[in-house]
């Protein structure tokens, strides 16, 4: 199932505790999966089994990106499933070192 992603879109996993928020997204429709199942809107209900082949896990606070970093997703709650976009696993983006300004 492909959905439109835009900054601020929140999604949750159907098969684990994972929750995410889209930080940035290029225009278009994407299939976003976690743990082998399509991700859901925050108010949707879903059930299913975690695919053991897609169980690398997500970590709270980490940013996940596709190869060209046109899509960036923030994990707001960690879980057991791995994030996959259009069939390709998302990678953890290296944290930026920013001076604290406030």
């Amino acid at each position: 199932m492909a959905i439109t992603l835009k900054a601020g879109t929140r999604l949750k996993s159907a098969v684990c505790e994972t929750q995410v928020m889209v930080i940035k997204a290029a225009a278009g429709e994407y299939a976003v999966q976690c743990g082998g199942a399509a991700m859901l809107a925050p108010n949707e209900d879903g059930a299913g089994e975690l695919d053991p082949a897609q169980a690398g896990g997500t970590l709270i606070g980490k940013r996940y990106v596709n190869a060209d970093e046109s899509i960036e997703i923030l994990c707001t709650k960690g879980g057991k499933g791995s994030l996959v976009l259009d069939g390709v696993p998302l990678e953890v983006k290296q944290a930026k070192q920013l001076p604290s300004s406030d």
């Binding site: 900054a7 980490k62 923030l74 944290a95 930026k96």
Partner: peptide, 16 residues
């Protein structure tokens, strides 16, 4: 909310 959250996520790393 979108202004403030963009600012935070754009300039701070979680649990840094």
């Amino acid at each position: 909310h979108e202004n403030l959250l963009s600012y935070i996520v754009g300039t701070v790393e979680f649990a840094a």
